[in-house]
Structures are given as C-alpha cells and as structure tokens.
Amino acid sequence: MRVNFTVNGRPQQADDVWEGESLLYVLRERLGLPGSKNACEQGECGSCTVRLDGVPVCACLVAAGQAEGREVVTVEGLAAGGQGELAPVQQAFIDAGAVQCGFCTPGLLVVADDLLAHTPQPSDADIREALSGNLCRCTGYEKILDAVRLAAARAGAGQEG
C-alpha cells in the first residue's frame, strides 16, 4: 500500500508498504529517518517515541496505515531552526551529560520536549512521571533529570531576560 503523511513539516510518501509494517519501520527503513529507535518494538521502552498529531506515541505500536494524512514529528524534527541548530532540550542533554550510549535519547528528547511545551517549569516529580515510559540503561536517570531541569531553567531565564 501507499502511505502519505507529514514528517517534520514535510509531506512524505511511502510506497510498497506491507500492511503489517509499523510507523517506526516506515520511518526508519523507507523514509531514511532512523533517529527513532528500535529498542523493544513492543511499546515498553519509549525509544521510538514520536509526536503523532502532537501527541507522543510509541511509533512501534502505530500501524503505518494509521499515520495516513497525519503529522509526525520525530527527533530529527526537534531542531526547528534546522541548519544544525539544536533545540534547547537537545543541547541540555549534551551539556548535562544525559547521553551515554544514546539509544534511549531520541525518545526521551521527544517526551521531554513535549513536557516542557506543556509544563515549562516542571517539578522533579513531574519530570519523573512524564519520562517514566522511557527506559534508559546507562545513566541511572540522574543526568537526564539534570538535563530537563537545565532546559527548563534556561527557558525560564530566557523569558525573564
């Protein structure tokens, strides 16, 4: 089948899609967007999280056909400015040491970005709750908390200034 949907603001068309393929598979293998990760492919780890019409979902649990006509934002689309400029939350992950192997990072970034969009100054408990669907095996999460706190603080400081 053919699937048409918007990815990171650009219309995309995927052909010869087998009906059983997930949105994750189509993004990774047919559209050249491997940033969303395939850590469990069963909706348990959050590494493939994308925004589907603005709502974070596990792309591995969305059938590709369900994305027809909809808008998808992946980790590749977080840096809205393009031209290599990172989104604040991406830069905060680097600066705080929240990236080790990095396999969980794309999913965490999409979720953290969504959290900060809705809750610009989250409490630690808010951050933990929002990120609780994303597994990380390397960091022990402390630096990930630091990164989200840092992104929130920088955004807050930016607004005050």
Partner: peptide, 14 residues
C-alpha cells in the same frame, strides 16, 4: 553528543 541528540548517530540497526 550532537549526533546522538539529533538522531543522526548511526547505530548498527540504522
């Protein structure tokens, strides 16, 4: 770090 947060870092499965 930059490649890893932008989704461009090529893991084996990519």
């Amino acid at each position: 770090g930059t490649l890893k947060v932008s989704g461009e870092f090529a893991y084996a499965s990519d």
